[in-house]
Computed example of a mutant assay.
Amino acid sequence: MEPDVSVETSCMIRIAVLPIGPIPPSHFRDYASMLARHHKIELSTISSFYTEHQKSPFSNQPWDSGSIRFKFMVGGSAASPWEDFQSNRKILAVIGICHCPSSPDLESVIEQFSNACKSYSSSLVQRCFAFCPGDSQLEDNSRKEGNLVLFPPADRQTQEFHLHTMMQDVAASLLMEFEKWVLRPDSGGTILKTPLDSQASLSSEEVIKAKKRRLGRAQKTIGDYCLLAGSPVDANAHYATALELARLTGDYFWYAGALEGSVCALLVDRMGQKDPVLEDEVKYRYNSVILHYRKSFIQDNAQRYFLLQSFGASCFE
C-alpha cells in the first residue's frame, strides 16, 4: 500500500518535484519544503491566471469555496499501472528546482529540465523554478517566456509569496488542461484498462465486453478529473452515470472505483463539516466499495477458472 493514502487522496494532483542541475542537497530540501506548504490553492485566488477558452465542463465549480490540492512527489515517482483506473495516480505536473549559483548556464538548465520531463508523459504542466539568479541571469530577458521561472534573491517571506503566486499559476494551468481533456471529442471513446484487463483473454467476447464497458469507464475517468479540478458536485454526477453503466455491464471493479470516487467527492463537498451522519455515510459507502472490489476479484477468478476448464476439456477432445 502506498504511504500517506487516505479517502481524500483521489482529489490530489500528483506533481513530480525534481532537482535540476548540481543543486546542493540541503538547498533542494529547503526549496522542496517551502514548496510543500503550498499544497492547497483556493480557486478564488487563481482568476488572474485562468482563462475560459470555451464553456467549462465543470458547471458546478465552487469558485468561492473550492480548492485545488497537490501531492508533491519529491524526487519523482515511477509510472503506475493503475493510472487509467485512478487519474490521481498520474504525474500531472512536473516542477524542477534549480539553484542558479550552482548552475550558471541557464540554457543547460532548460535542456536538463526538458529531458527530465520526458519521463513523465502524463504531465500537463511543467515549470522550472530557478532560485537566487545572478544579475547577468536576471538581465537575460529572452528566458522570461516559457517554463523557466526565476526567483530573485529575497527574504523568506517574499520568496514564499512569489512561490504561492507561481503555484496559483500552476493550479490555473492544470484546471484549463483538465477542461480540455474532458471536452476532447474522443474522451468518451478512450480505451481504459487496468492490469486486470491485460491479464484477461482477448477473445471476441472480451472485445465486445470491453466496448460495452468503455462508456462507463470514461464517465468514471471524467469524474476523476472533475474531482482533481476541485468540483465535487460535477464529479459526483459523472460517478453516478459511471455506476449505472458499470452495473449494467457487470464491470464490478470500475463500479467499485466510481463508488470510491463518489465517497471522496462527498467528503470534499462537505469539507470542514463535523457531522456524525456524514461519518456513518462514509463508513457505509466505503464498506460497499470494499465489497465490490472483492466481488470483482471473485468474478475475475471465476472467469479464469472457466477458461482453464474449457481449455483443459478441449485438449482431451
Rank of each mutant, 00 (worst) to 15 (best):
R156M: 04
E205G: 03
G146H: 13
R89S: 00
T158N: 03
N88L: 02
S142F: 14
I97E: 01
K40T: 13
I95C: 13
G257A: 10
P185R: 13
S87D: 01
L43Y: 03
K274G: 02
E111S: 13
F306N: 08
L307H: 10
G66H: 11
A229Y: 12
K211A: 04
I222A: 07
M34I: 05
S103N: 11
N60A: 06
R14N: 12
F161V: 08
L43W: 07
S262N: 02
A93C: 14
L174Y: 07
I20E: 01
G261W: 02
Q112D: 09
I97F: 03
E179G: 00
D30P: 00
Y305S: 07
V233H: 11
S122N: 13
G21V: 07
F311L: 14
E52M: 09
P25E: 04
I46H: 08
A258E: 01
M166L: 12
T158C: 04
R156S: 04
V74P: 02
F253V: 02
A172T: 05
L196Y: 14
Q299S: 05
E281P: 02
Q199N: 06
S102L: 05
I13Y: 01
S203V: 03
H99V: 00
N60I: 00
Y305E: 11
V207P: 00
C128Q: 09
D105M: 11
F178L: 03
Y31G: 01
Q199T: 09
R127Q: 14
T221C: 05
F70N: 12
Q219G: 01
D169P: 01
F131Y: 15
P276F: 13
D280I: 11
R69N: 15
I110D: 07
A218I: 06
Q219S: 09
E177R: 15
R29N: 08
H53M: 10
D135T: 15
N236F: 11
A130I: 09
C128K: 07
V5F: 05
E179P: 00
T51K: 13
A210W: 06
E177Q: 15
T45I: 06
K212N: 03
N88F: 14
M1L: 08
S310Y: 03
R214W: 00
D30L: 12
D105E: 09
H162F: 13
N147G: 03
L228D: 03
F129L: 15
E83W: 03
K220A: 06
Y50H: 14
S203G: 08
V125F: 09
I15S: 07
L175H: 06
K193F: 09
